[in-house]
Design a binder for these strands. Structure first.
Length: 599
RNA sequence: CGGGGCGUAGCGCAGCCUGGUAGCGCACCUGCCUUGGGCGCAGGGGGUCGUAGGUUCAAAUCCUAUCGCCCCGACCA
């Protein structure tokens, strides 16, 4: 029997001053966690019980589709060099040296290690498909750990990896994970949504993120209330209302107009009595990418989009296969546009051909030194009679038509969706929320199997690289998300499946023998029926015990008090505060109707 | 890495400007009391004031450096 009086549950009346988000404050106050350093936390009794329950659910569902391994956390440098990520991971990776001076790192994720096993052992298509998973501690030297358990430097992750003979088979492994993840998060009692995510510049074809809405989240997700459209900001798009085009003036050719001192879009629009929607915004970047020699390569990228839109830099990075963007400086603007900041525009640019998109090989960069990658946002396709900068101080152009009056390297969706725009599926209004990512499934492709040399023979005897997928779940984030989702000023409540205890039995007055023994009896009964119960038998005033019970996350409380003389106790549901008088003799039956048996 | 803030008892804070005995609330220990929402009374324990230098007769307080933590930004396969 778990007696509170003998347990270590250090609850706090006040939250630590440096806690900001609800889950952080409450998990500390409830005695689940204590901080050791920035982004490093100890899990105490209650916190550990919960994460163990979460892991049990994850394990049960993963065992239905895969096999659990246990892999090292310390990795030799060589494996990470083979995949190229020893360099790519940069400062985010914890590195150390052993006594012989050999380089090692703490694993941030385990693609390399799993692929290493695969290449040494897998020989034939007959051994595929394989799904291997593990639940392991990961280390990331975050530049800025924050928000309690949300962004930390050490955390537990369930990660799995699939090896398939071809893309069709990968689809099956991917779908298995998708379904397993839904079962896991359902069982953990989370309200989550699945969003399409961008798969990054490093290859990979499909990716979904499992997100929980919360103000503490760091990711933005776009979703439709009407249909089930949901996407990551970096992937989201929207249907735009038709724009009323300006009338052409003169012969319809671009026409120079004097706009003295009106550089900004808003000024131009006001000066010309037009809407920003009729203006072309020009955003000029230098795209950056680390070169093979370790030096940063740069190339000019210019985006044209509707005056009231803004560039989504992640979309753009993916499009031009770059790792970073910086705004062009004045001299660079003058070099490529031959015009002054504020009045730059598309006409007169030397446009790189479509084949040059995403091309970084310096040998293929020869040609006109003024050549730039020009990206036209799709929202400008087919537009007519627009206003744009003339590349001349204090002048703009009228009657400009993308595609006719200027060329571009590529037309693509590179703008950010704005809340209230129309859903691309059903046309209803889109909303944008912050959310926390609790799971991510990802079609990796051949990146690791190719670079690390995993090969199997296919049914024709031909040597091929297996195609891979990688899939992660943040264990602590499930807890954090659950707390974020269900809390008030007094504390939080967890879904019974992951709460440290499903029921707390409060003996309101321990000096009353009848009350004390009844509370013990009830606890014993409920335990006997398979429920997870803790008995609060502390010699405290009832108020103290009620406050604690409200704080620490148990979904149900049984108050054993004066009504024992009538054979009754109260059952209080934490989430609703609803209190029900229940006959002591019927208490087990009552909970059987409320709670599913423990798995 | 840029900007800001904070390090004084387990937690929350005051004291610092204007140098001179280290304080308050909660928590903790003992006793009494109380027992349906952090109850009351009495007594008590606990802090090299983040660390290291410096100035001074004297430093929590002034100066310098350094470490740590938090927030905003950058970053986040």
């Amino acid at each position: 029997m778990h007696r509170w009086s003998e347990l270590f549950i250090p609850t706090l009346r006040e939250a630590p001053a440096d806690a900001e988000v609800a889950s952080h404050k409450l998990l500390v106050r409830a005695g689940y966690i204590r901080q050791l350093g920035a982004g490093i936390y100890s899990f105490l009794f209650l916190g550990n019980r919960t994460t163990q329950k979460i892991m049990k659910i994850v394990r049960q569902e993963m065992d239905k589709i895969g096999q659990e391994f246990y892999l090292p956390a310390i990795h030799p440098r060589e494996v990470w060099e083979e995949s190229g990520r020893w360099t790519v991971m940069g400062e985010n990776m914890f590195r150390l040296k052993d006594r012989k001076g050999a380089d090692l790192c703490l694993g941030m994720t385990h693609e390399e290690i799993m692929t290493d096993i695969a290449r040494k052992e897998l020989r034939s298509y007959k051994q595929l498909p394989q799904i291997w998973y593990q639940i392991q501690t990961k280390f990331r030297d975050e530049p800025r750990p924050k928000s309690g358990l949300l962004r930390v430097r050490q955390f537990i992750m369930k990660d799995s990896y699939s090896f398939d003979i071809d893309a069709t088979e990968l689809d099956i492994s991917y779908l298995k994970h998708y379904d397993a993840y839904c079962r896991i998060f359902d069982r953990c009692g989370l309200k989550y949504m699945v969003v399409e995510a961008h798969s990054g510049a490093m290859g990979g074809s499909q990716s979904h993120e499992f997100m929980v809405r919360t103000p503490a989240g760091e990711d933005l997700i776009v979703s439709c209330e009407k249909c089930n459209y949901a996407a990551n900001m970096e992937k989201a798009t929207s249907k735009l209302a038709a724009i009323e085009e300006l009338k052409p003036e003169g012969d319809g050719q671009p026409l120079l107009i004097h706009t003295p001192g009106k550089g900004a879009i808003a000024d131009v629009a006001e000066f010309l009595k037009i809407s920003a929607k009729q203006d072309i915004k020009t955003v000029a970047y230098m795209a950056q990418k680390p070169g093979d020699d370790g030096k940063t390569q740069e190339q000019p990228v210019v985006v044209f989009l509707r005056g009231d839109h803004s560039v989504n830099e992640t979309k753009l990075l993916t499009l031009v296969k770059a790792s970073n963007l910086r705004p062009m400086q004045t001299e660079e603007l003058e070099k490529y546009f031959q015009g002054p900041a504020g009045f730059i525009g598309p006409i007169g640019l030397v446009v790189k051909p479509k084949e040059a998109l995403g091309e970084w090989d310096p040998k293929k960069q020869a040609g006109d030194p003024r050549a730039v990658t020009v990206v036209l946002d799709e929202a400008l396709s087919g537009r007519t009679n627009m206003i744009c900068g003339a590349n001349e101080l204090d002048y703009h152009l009228k009657n400009v038509m993308p595609g006719k009056d200027f060329q571009y390297t590529v037309a693509s969706d590179v703008r950010s969706v704005v809340a209230g725009e129309d859903c691309p599926n059903c046309g209803a209004a889109l909303r944008i929320d912050t959310a926390v990512e609790i799971g991510h499934i990802f079609k990796l492709g051949y990146k690791y199997s190719e670079s690390m040399g995993a090969r199997v023979l296919d049914r024709h005897g031909k040597e091929v690289a297996p195609i891979m997928g990688s899939y992660g779940i943040g264990i602590e984030r499930i807890l954090t998300a659950a707390v974020e989702q269900s809390n008030d000023e007094n504390g939080f409540w967890l879904p019974p499946s992951i709460a440290p205890f499903e029921v707390v039995v409060v003996a309101t007055n321990t000096s009353d023998d009848k009350i004390r023994t009844t509370a013990e009896d009830i606890t014993r009964q409920l335990e006997g029926a398979g429920f997870d119960v803790v008995l609060d038998d502390r010699d405290e005033r009832p108020g103290v015990k009620f406050k604690d019970a409200d704080l620490v996350g148990m979904p149900f409380r049984v108050n054993v008090g004066k009504k024992v003389t009538e054979g009754m106790v109260e059952v209080v549901q934490r989430s609703t505060r609803q209190s029900t008088d229940v006959k002591i003799s019927a208490i087990t039956e009552y909970f059987k109707g409320l709670l599913p048996p423990l798995g």
